[in-house]
Structure formats: structure tokens, C-alpha cells
Design a binder for these strands. Structure first.
Lengths: 222, 222
DNA sequence: ACAAGTGGATACCATCACTATCTATAGTAG
DNA sequence: CTACTATAGATAGTGATGGTATCCACTTGT
């Protein structure tokens, strides 16, 4: 198909498609002449993936590019590691301002303690590691004293682990069609994020209403 | 204190402070002359809150403004409702493109079914409602057929509820210093979001490594 | 008296994610 | 063949965002 059809089918304007081509998010079509190229289903799929990453978690074009490049690196036979690497690219790489090295170091130690206490098999290269460190630093900066001991995070982290268990059942086996798993995992990681955050807010509301109702009855005369 | 000290203490440049003043995020200082004003601890607190909302969840200036304006509306005695309203402002208001009305309607029905099934006491005005609808629409668009029945989300939603329970203990009582609760709730909602998402990724890694290890042993000869 | 600091207004700037235009050429209907 | 539209690739422009920078007529501190 030619670019006009690609645009019509995907619902993305031609200038935008050209922009994605320039930025290296979309591979060029196969040239049939210096100013003619043909595109196929792969290009449609790629455009759909780009939009999903953008709409789902509002990823920037440069982050999407990193993810896609890593996904394209995939060679059959290297699944579990590669899957991690691709998902790690969803976060921004950690850059530590020189005047805050120790804040980051403390956060990193805190995170290591937490994951070791819980027995999680993760390491510094795992996706989420850098994001967690960054988030801990931000919390300590803006709510200092809230977390004085990483043990305080245990119930919280265990609840998040429950969440992960509900997403990845015991039967999960990445050996089945690794490429599909890669695609689905990246997309699932991103598309469920907003749902989690939204449901969390709803659960908070329910929780506050429930505890308020429960607290009202036992203490009718304060 | 004067603006130079406000800037030094908060670590935010004078032009940026003036920008926040212009945008209505920061109230003006008390004028002592046509070109002199004095600022106090409230302004420092406000600047810190602005940065927390920005750094924590990357909220836009306009969203932060909406949140702050709502928080400022607070009148003693109206806590639980007001708390909800302030937190609802953390999300973008829902605007439905006219050509997708039914996709949004279906998502809304799906969400209502889910919360009713689970017995959550929430309504259309609850914080998270609009975000959840938006997120469901995005999932259906990019992974059509993944969720055919809202019951599929039950384990997932229950896990999120566990999370909320770990954050809001049974003893939670908003009657104690409502203003502090408001401040803390808004900040907590935002600052824990990146931690949740990061820990989720780490939990995924652990889960995949664990299930991979478990699956390897029972099937030594495929 | 005078340098340094201030509030308020306005202009400017860099980044981001597109969007538009231009040119030389290719496909295509009559 | 002609006339027309479509195309690749290059370059330039746009609107929104989140600040910076400059200017002015003043105060303030010394």
C-alpha cells in the first residue's frame, strides 16, 4: 500500500507519518523508485503500537523510540532478559544531579533492603529499579520523615505484589511465542498503568466512605 | 521575607516564582508599597506543594492550579466531600470526542458494573471515575478483545483494593485536623503513584523469574 | 545620594509534537 | 502524449508549555 492508504487505514495524517519516519519510530517503506515506497501490515501494526504507547501512558516520542528500538533488537531465543530490557526502556534513564548523590544512594539502599526483605528476585538492571529510586527521592524530599524505615513499605509492596500476581498467573510461560509475549507485555505494562491509578482512587473513595460509616456507629457520643 | 529570600529558601528562581504568581498558583505577597511585598511561611509551603505535584506525577501547571484552587476553597466542616473534589482535580476532566460517544458509554457501563459487582461505594463524581473510563477506552482501542467481560477485572481490582487498604487503615479518621488530612491525601495520592508503578514492574520481574524457575523443574523433558 | 532590590508588565526562548510547504519525480486517466 | 494527482525527502513553520530575561518606575538599605 502507499502512504495515502496507510494514513487512511491508521487514521494518522500523512505529515505525522512522515514525522514518525524521520524520527525513526516507523521503518521506511520499501522503495520502488526514488520517490515511491510501499508499506504493509507491519507499518500499520507499528503505527498502532506507537499510538498505544502514547495514549496509554503519555510516553514521549523519544521514550517510545527507545522502546521500539529495543523491541526490534529482539533475536529468537533470548526472551526473558530481552523482555526486561524492553520494559526498562519505558522509564527515563536515571541521571543523578551531583549535589544529590547521597539522597539517591540512600534511596537505593532503602529499595535494596525492601526487595531483599521481601525476597524479590530483582537487581539494579531490572525495569522499575531506577523509577523506584527516583520516586523514593521525591517522597523524601517532599514528605520528609514519612518513611523512616523501609519496613513501613512492606504492606504496601506486598499489596503491589498481589497486583502483579493477578496480572501474571502461575501458569505464565514465556516460552510460548516469545515475540507475542514481548509485544503484549510492553503494551500491558503501559495500558494498565492508568487503570491501576484510577481504580486506586476509586478504592480510596470507597475505603474512606466505608471507614467513615464504620467509625460513625461505634462512637455515637463523642 | 522578600522575594529574594523566598527564592533562596525554596531553591526556586525569582523569575519562576513570578511566573507562578502570574499563573495564580502562588498568592501574591502582602503589599507594603506599590512595588514591595512580603511573603511568609505559607508561600514557602505553597511552593513546596507545587514542586511536589510537578515532580511527583508530572502534573501540568494548569492541573496544579485546578487542584490548588480547590484546596483553597476548603471551609472547615466539609472534609470528606471536599477531599474527594480536590483529588478529582488531579485528573484531566473527561472530554468525549463526538465520534466516540458509544465507546465511552460502553466503558462507563463496564466500570459501573465492575464497581457494583465489587460493592464499592463510588459514583460518577468520584475521583478516578473519568480516568478509569478513559483508560478503559484506550485499552479497548489498542487491545480489542482483551477484556470481554468486566468480571475479568475482578482479581485485578481486588488487588488494587488491597493496595488501598494498605494505604488507608481501618483506623483512618478524617475528623482529625481535616486541613492536614486534605494536604496529606492530595500529596500521598500523587507521590505514591510512581512508587506503585515502579514496584509493580519490579514485582513483575520477580514473578516472571519465579514462575520461570518453577516451570523449569516440573517439565524437565518437554 | 546612590547602588541594589522590587513588583508588574512584556518580550523572549527552548522543547515538543506535529503541520505545512517545496521540489523533483512517479503513477495514472484520458 | 498530456494533464493531473500522489509521493519521498528536505526544510521551515506552528501552537502549546514552562519557564527566562528585560525593562520600568519605584523602594530600601547604607
Amino acid at each position: 500500500m502507499r502512504i495515502a492508504e496507510l494514513s487512511r487505514t491508521s487514521g494518522i495524517s500523512i505529515p505525522t507519518i512522515k514525522y514518525y519516519l524521520r524520527e525513526g519510530l516507523l521503518p521506511s517503506g520499501e522503495n520502488t523508485a526514488p520517490n515511491q515506497a510501499k508499506y504493509d501490515q507491519q507499518h500499520l501494526d507499528r503505527l498502532s503500537l506507537i499510538r498505544a504507547l502514547r495514549d496509554g501512558a503519555g510516553l514521549s516520542i523519544s521514550t517510545i523510540k527507545r522502546v521500539l528500538v529495543t523491541m526490534d533488537d529482539y533475536q529468537p531465543g533470548q526472551t526473558p532478559l530481552h523482555l526486561s530490557i524492553a520494559i526498562r526502556e519505558l522509564g527515563e534513564p536515571l541521571t543523578i544531579p551531583e549535589d544529590e548523590v547521597d539522597a539517591y544512594q540512600r534511596a537505593e539502599v532503602e529499595l535494596n533492603t525492601l526487595t531483599e526483605d521481601l525476597g524479590w528476585k530483582v537487581d539494579l538492571d531490572s525495569p522499575g529499579h531506577d523509577d523506584a529510586v527516583r520516586a523514593l527521592v521525591t517522597i523524601h524530599r517532599h514528605l520528609p520523615g514519612l518513611i523512616t524505615d523501609s519496613k513501613q513499605l512492606h504492606p504496601f509492596a506486598q499489596a503491589v505484589r498481589q497486583l502483579a500476581e493477578s496480572e501474571i498467573p502461575d501458569s505464565f510461560n514465556p516460552a510460548v511465542d516469545p515475540e507475542a509475549v514481548l509485544h503484549f507485555s510492553v503494551l500491558g505494562t503501559v495500558l494498565f498503568e492508568p487503570i491501576i491509578l484510577a481504580l486506586r482512587k476509586l478504592a480510596h473513595v470507597d475505603r474512606i466512605r466505608s471507614t467513615a460509616a464504620a467509625n460513625r456507629k461505634p462512637t455515637p457520643s463523642p
